[in-house]
Nucleic acid binder design. Structure first.
Lengths: 208, 208
DNA sequence: GTCTATATGGCGATAGAC
DNA sequence: GTCTATCGCCATATAGAC
């Protein structure tokens, strides 16, 4: 039926917004129903329980993130350009979805089971990601642990956005524009910081 | 009364644990009461409502963190040693309190009002912190924005611990010991990474 | 101050008409 | 498929005895 897909889509979109903003515990079925412009009992008609609805939304979200990471490892692009591309892409995404990083970090620690299902469904294979990266790093002379490389960049991109209220209030005295400008400036400064660091790893012995 | 202080202290400790692990929304007054070894209604006798109890705990927590940061800016210690000291201290603290970073990031985004009260009470003054740091960085020849310096280090320390379940499962295939060893190894590798990067900033023009 | 018992409200979920 | 009405539970909060 036409209506089926449409309504389910409206529910999914509303649920996605509410869950991300309020978390599993804080979200209310009523609020999701309101935002979807339908009745509360219709939610249960489509997704029997709140937990099932949450699992559905969460797994779709993880899936999308996994896909984005895969796309990152195209060949023929220098490390520096990959860093630049990654940093710019994710800062933009996270600026548009300010609740996303906290949501994922949080649900994943409070409800670890969701990980096994969600990530398994997304078929994320770290080895497929780290092996070629390690090769490329070595080929360009950077003798750094690829895990450090990836995690440090992820950290510097995500943390200041996950900690937005803290930074905004403490470092920028509540000035939202100053905060946003600073985050945008990090598109350049993170790349600079990373490439400076990588320069140091050129001097190191190859280690494995 | 003797009993008053003792009971209040037991409640505070229990509430702290439960709130940090489950968050404001996930925490249950019953669980706090059980953990404190008292009756549920006694909680309300001491702290009229759950919200008031939460605010009390949260503000105390922020206060302690603020104090720790202040202590960090002692004179007569090189940048490298400060980085080393900070990284080691906080990795140890966060390993012992695995739910802490998520708790703070989360409550602070979901309930931004708590920030104003909590941080205001803790009388955190960023200028008092950044100004001497900037001086020292310049004095040692590192022409880096002190905000980048601080935020990058904070990011690299906190993020891998806030994202523990993700790293543990995806990068280390569920091997908890491998994850913990890796985090401990970061005590050295973060300092290395930062100092390599700082080397690059030595070549830059002084900018202000 | 500390307990037992209970009120009160909210939320997830279901029944049933249309 | 979509709605209204309602159930049943659970969590916060209060009343009142001791």
């Amino acid at each position: 039926m036409e209506k089926e897909l449409l309504t389910e889509e409206k529910i999914a979109e509303a649920a996605r917004e509410v869950f991300i903003e309020k978390g599993m515990n804080g979200a209310r079925m009523q609020e999701i129903a309101d935002k979807a412009g339908i009745n509360k009992s219709l939610l249960h008609y489509y997704f029997r329980t709140k937990e099932k609805l949450f699992a559905f939304i969460f797994s779709k979200l993880i899936h999308r993130i996994g896909d984005r990471l895969e796309n990152l490892m195209q060949e023929g692009v220098s490390i520096e350009d990959k860093v630049k591309g990654y940093v710019e892409l994710y800062i933009d995404i996270l600026l548009k979805n300010p609740f996303l990083p906290n949501f994922i970090l949080n649900e994943v620690t409070r409800n670890p089971d969701a990980i096994f299902e969600g990530f398994a469904a997304a078929k994320i294979n770290p080895q497929k990601f780290f092996a070629p990266l390690e090769n490329q790093l070595k080929a360009e002379g950077y003798n750094i642990d690829p895990r450090d490389f990836v995690i440090n960049i992820l950290s510097m991109v995500i943390f200041p956005l996950a900690g937005r209220p803290i930074l905004e209030h403490i470092v920028f005295n509540g000035d939202k524009k100053a905060y946003k400008d600073y985050i945008l400036s990090r598109k350049k400064s993170i790349v600079e910081f990373v490439m400076f660091a990588l320069e140091g790893y050129k001097k190191l012995e190859v280690r494995d």
